[in-house]
Design a protein around this nucleic acid. Structure first.
Lengths: 351, 351
DNA sequence: AAACTGACGTAGAGCGTTTTCCAGAAATGG
DNA sequence: CCATTTCTGGAAAACGCTCTACGTCAGTTT
């Protein structure tokens, strides 16, 4: 029989003793420091393996002043989050980069109020829970950047920040190619009344995407026929498109901020008796997997969120001096034409 | 001008000195221990606030043998994950419970191979990165339970485990009410040829749901007309339903393992020219937000995943001796009838 | 033969808390 | 008025590592 309950935790001392070396030797082996012969290294490793020992993260963190953890705080309402499945892909990418350096990812969810968000950043900075943070969803006038630099917490913005923002960021070199492609595609397909259903204007990507789309349209000699701003909610998108379709000057194509909203819009249109894309073309943004399955399959703009997560994490690790990997280049978003878009209803067929 | 770069981190000593007390006093205040007068407490708090100090989590973890962190490792392929938006709601619920006790959530994603999963559990246990873990998706013959108890890592299974499984779990008292309701609903609507498209059989919920559904049907004197097992993939669902609809004895209703698959199935049916629900009724499971938006709106079985996450986290905190809250009761899943289901096509109208 | 290299290790001082006694002062009781 | 309690707060030993100096020892140089 064993001792009744709590056998003492195995520590570095046990390993050192078992291998007949000092603690320092063990530490060096487990931290990849040089100065230990291959034989000794192997002996230490073997003992550690037998004992099921690995350096305690708290002790290591305290001694080395690094938690080997990075944080991510998201300020989305649970409600909205559900709807945002690509969040998970982003994280998967982040994890892929972190696990290679034995880093962990700490997640925080905080609701929309700016105060709660700020409090969380302060807390994790003061408690030194993480070595750095990854930022989701850049905002116009993003107060996080100043906060983070005040807190001296290394940070990397995933995705393009507003021009001039004081923050390290990772994003594709050409970020708006998708929106521009979409504009050209619609134009080429004879669409002349094109509507744009955007999200809240304080989102940087909303801002840039619309600018790129409108800019390209202008280059083709066209303006937006309608433009509406919503709160990134499905019901808003549904209401918006229905509203757009009232009246004679209705659009023949509608560009929508993201796929969730686009899917809701298509549903609403169908329920109201409109045919997509015969009556109106719909284009989303993000390439959610669902887009491939609904009927009609959704035309959308694809983004490589996995790589974005991975690249951002690598950049952060670089800043923390924890990796030699270089940040991979990110593919530009591209238009994926599927079934929800087609020639404009009143267009002369293109030969 | 400040000192050039690295002003030393403020520690508990600075706070103690500032308040004219010992470190112990400060520690006691921040850990809610008694024995410090209200005045002193307030003085200490004030100094800490001014200095922007909070106990270093690594130091606290080392000294108190608790990381105030719980872990969650998910073994889903990124690909599948995207499709599983409710994962985020679950986490939101978990966070809600954790933040109240100043706990953090560490997330790990590991791909499907069992080896990678086991390695991750071993690593976080040995490194003592977390105080306990929350388990997603119970599996038949779940090897994690034995592993976790070997590692002495407290764990709580979110959702119902297989009968007799040695694991602490949190789930609704009556877990299969939704599936039973669905069976009755279909029967009452005249459906007599009912098909079931399930996920892999090693998932416990797949097992129980099917059993409940089939059981209720049997009670009504009916058997499944078709039953197919898939890999939880949209393409599988799409192929499966198309296949089911071939031939004369085709089902008038199809019950599908989850909403993502149900949505894909509806898309596939529509593309093939079938009308839902006129030709065939479709029922999903999970109540993904998307279900409300597509056309036709999806009939489904709702689960309160937010509460499941929250309740599971509370249970884990209880086990860790970190909360006095009691575990809230979980609402049983319920059928939500929307538009993708209706009377059987060949049924005599029910008066 | 003395001095110098490298290669391989070790000693031991932290890292910033928590926590277990313990002590002194003030309040209480008989 | 002395003996007890009750409050407050302090001293100091962990907690389990990392990391900077330093040794030691064999082999090389001069």
């Amino acid at each position: 029989m064993e001792a009744p309950n709590d056998k003492p935790r195995v520590t570095i001392n046990d390993v050192a003793a078992g291998a007949g070396v000092s603690r320092s030797a063990v530490s060096k082996v487990f931290n990849g420091r040089s100065g230990i012969s291959p034989e000794t290294t192997e002996r230490i490793r073997a003992v550690a393996r037998d004992l099921g020992w690995a350096p305690s993260s708290s002790a290591a963190a305290l001694a080395s002043a690094s938690t080997r953890t990075i944080g991510m705080v998201t300020n989305r309402e649970p409600d909205l989050l559900v709807v945002d499945p690509h969040f998970a892909v982003l994280i998967a990418g982040v994890e892929e980069a972190l696990v290679a350096q034995d880093f962990g990812l700490q997640l925080y969810m905080v609701g929309e109020e700016a105060a709660a968000e700020e409090a969380t950043y302060r807390r994790i900075a003061q408690q030194r829970r993480v070595d750095g943070v990854l930022l989701t969803e850049s905002r116009v006038d993003d107060r996080r950047y100043a906060l983070l630099s005040e807190l001296r917490l290394p940070a990397v913005q995933m995705g393009r920040p507003l021009e001039g923002a004081k923050v390290e960021a990772v994003h594709p070199a050409v970020g708006d190619s998708g929106a521009m492609e979409a504009a050209r595609y619609l134009y080429d397909n004879g669409h002349r009344r094109i509507a744009y259903v955007a999200g809240p204007d304080d989102r940087v990507h909303t801002h840039y995407r619309r600018r790129a789309f409108v800019g390209e349209l202008a280059r083709l000699g066209l303006g937006l026929s309608h433009s509406v701003t919503t709160r990134f909610r499905e019901e808003d998108a549904a209401a918006a498109v229905l509203d757009l379709m009232r009246g004679d000057a209705r659009p023949t194509a509608i560009m929508i901020a993201n796929d969730s909203m686009a899917i809701a819009a298509i549903g609403a249109l169908q329920r109201a008796g409109w045919r997509v894309p015969d009556d109106v073309s719909i284009i989303g943004h993000d390439d959610l997997p669902f887009g491939r399955w609904i009927h009609p399959r959704l035309t959308t703009i694809e983004q490589d969120l996995f790589q974005l997560g991975r690249a951002s994490a690598i950049r952060l690790l670089q800043i923390l001096g924890r990796t030699d990997q270089s940040v991979p280049a990110l593919r530009s978003p591209a238009l994926i034409v599927r079934e929800s878009s087609g020639p404009a209803p009143d267009a002369t067929p293109v030969v």
